[in-house]
Design a protein around this nucleic acid. Structure first.
Length: 554
DNA sequence: GACATATGGT
């Protein structure tokens, strides 16, 4: 009888359980004195984690006296997967001082948490721990290291790890190809792809997803088509991951016809594939088609998720037509997505960019669980409408509520200062960001500072700021300075700045147009003509489009 | 038993 009961428990503990069933199972296991069995404890922690009940998971962990590696791994993973990185790191530290030593799975989990938490410093520290534990050559750990480093930027460190492994397994090849791709080195990824084949290694779906996702520019269309051909020849064309990434690759390459063709080739597109197509239309094609396909998807009985809604709203915000935006808003209300922060923030953004700040504020007020993203959306909305002092008040409120500001928060604040011409406040927020919040100023922040100083007439100060930055200075920062020179008619400085920009080849056409305008307004028609002629054949500046929506619902 | 690489957005 007991044996039977035990095997029933065993079977139950293998199935995915709801929270109430998990609690029931937990109680049964305590009753039968099996609660110290690491197998059950591990499974139950996993079920609690799946059901978002970290509290019970933690209780169980704390109450289990004999903690196996499995048990440690499952609790650390529970925290990491719920994005409670600080708790995960804390437990990991605790584990290091316990008698159970971390294994390759523990390290894999912590390494991933480092990259998801954008914590390069900790990543290096954990990497050190990996080396000390002698797990540097483990295939699971090394692929995690490669992915983590590439996601955080220093892909060169990832390739050092990759090159240090004599016989990389398929996962490691895939991680490195994906790593190059996510850092923009599609060419290195492609080289690796051909190298692995020449060594007789067959790629799988992951390889191709990593490779294709790195192609994001119309100039790479032919390469994308080539790889698409490879997928067709090798039977990868029914893999939904690959089809989705092909759809978004074709969209990013501005080839929506092909995106649609690939999409149509799939008998049962899933939500991600639909979403790739709709996002493609809204960002790179036409938003009306995006809305048509969105309706079509709904008619086929597929329900959108918060990611798709946020993407649609971003597209509508760019178009600045409120009509479809409010349609989506009612969809959100009908489907109960209003509590999703991603959605409510996108709504705030959409309304404010469509000129309906009031409606955006209403959405914010109805958002009960506000996080950094919601505050960021409201601060940038207020800033956009020139209401810098209101933005400052919201920032204060955000801090009082214990909500941590991030880089985008300061970007929104600086942008608000720019719109209102508040140099002092801008400088103060810039100082706060670095001194009080210990954040490193990024390109976008410098762009705002340069605009703020430049447009206030302090071009020299702006120039000094740019010169004080370590090389190479992002061309966006020089570009911001150039546009200030343009606006203020300072031809002398414009020339200096333009020279800096020319050194960054290829120089963006918009800067060339700006410079030629500057030459023209200075009466230097020859220079202007030369620059214009040099641009012929290349892509011109996008024509400016402005309108008042015909069907804006006003 | 715990488990490394992947698709849509921010």
């Amino acid at each position: 009888m007991f044996i039977q009961f035990r095997s029933l428990l065993f079977e139950l503990s293998k199935l995915h359980q709801t929270l109430s069933k998990t609690k029931h199972l937990h109680a049964l296991i305590i009753k039968t004195h099996l609660s110290n069995d690491p197998f059950y404890a591990t499974r139950i922690i996993r079920f609690y984690a799946i059901n978002d009940d970290l509290f019970s998971a933690r209780n169980l962990f704390d109450e289990t006296p004999h903690r196996s590696v499995y048990l440690w791994n499952s609790i650390i993973r529970a925290y990491a997967q719920s994005h409670k990185f600080i708790d995960a790191f804390h437990l990991f530290k605790h584990m290091l001082s316990s008698e159970t030593k971390p294994d390759n799975f523990t390290f894999a989990c912590i390494l991933r948490a480092c990259s998801e938490n954008f914590d390069l410093q900790r990543l290096r520290l954990v990497h050190g721990g990996v080396v000390v534990s002698g797990l540097g050559w483990d295939s699971i750990v090394s692929s995690s290291l490669v992915t983590a480093y590439s996601k955080l930027g220093p892909v060169s460190e990832a390739s050092i790890i990759f090159n240090g492994i004599l016989e990389p397994d398929l996962v490691l090849w895939n991680s490195m190809i994906f790593g190059y791709g996510c850092c923009g080195y599609w060419d290195k990824g492609l080289l690796l792809f051909s190298r692995m084949q020449s060594m007789g290694r067959q790629p799988d779906g992951y390889t191709l997803v990593g490779l294709i996702s790195s192609l994001a520019d119309p100039s790479l269309l032919e390469i994308g088509q080539g790889i698409h051909g490879f997928c067709l020849k090798n039977g990868f064309d029914s893999n939904t991951h690959i089809v989705s990434v092909l759809v978004s690759m074709y969209s990013r390459c501005k080839c929506l016809n092909s995106a649609l063709k690939v999409f149509d080739s799939l008998l049962e597109p899933d939500l991600v594939t639909w979403s790739a197509l709709i996002t493609g239309f809204s960002q790179f094609g036409d938003s009306e088609k995006a809305l048509i396909f969105f309706k079509k998807m709904n008619m086929e009985g597929k329900k959108a998720d918060p990611i798709l809604i946020a993407s649609l709203l971003a597209a509508i915000a760019q178009l600045a037509i409120v009509g479809p935006g409010s349609e989506i808003h009612s969809y959100v209300l009908r489907h109960g997505f209003e509590s999703e922060v991603m959605v409510s923030s996108a709504l705030i953004d959409m309304y404010s960019k469509c000129g309906f700040l009031r409606l955006g504020i209403q959405v914010f007020e109805r958002t009960l669980e506000r996080n950094t993203i919601s505050y960021n959306s409201l601060i940038s909305a207020l800033g956009l409408h020139g209401l810098a002092s209101d933005a400052f008040v919201i920032f204060k409120e955000m801090l009082e509520k214990g909500c941590e500001p991030d880089e985008s928060t300061f970007s929104a604040l600086l942008c608000a200062c720019c719109h209102a011409g508040l140099v002092r406040d801008g400088q103060e927020y810039f100082r706060k960001m670095t001194d009080e919040f210990g954040m490193e100023a990024k390109t976008e922040h410098y762009v705002h500072m340069v605009k703020l100083l430049g447009m206030a007439g302090e071009l020299e100060k702006a120039y000094e700021l740019v010169q004080s930055l370590p090389e190479p200075v992002d061309s966006g920062i020089w570009g911001a300075l150039l546009s200030c020179c343009d606006a203020l008619g300072n031809f002398e400085l414009a020339e200096k700045v333009a020279q800096q920009l020319f050194e960054h080849k290829p120089m963006k056409c918009t800067y060339k147009v700006m410079l030629s305008n500057i030459y023209a307004s200075d009466g230097r028609w020859d220079d202007a003509r030369k620059l214009r002629e040099a641009m012929k054949g290349g892509m011109g500046k996008m024509p400016g489009v402005s309108w008042i929506g015909g069907n804006s619902g006003l």
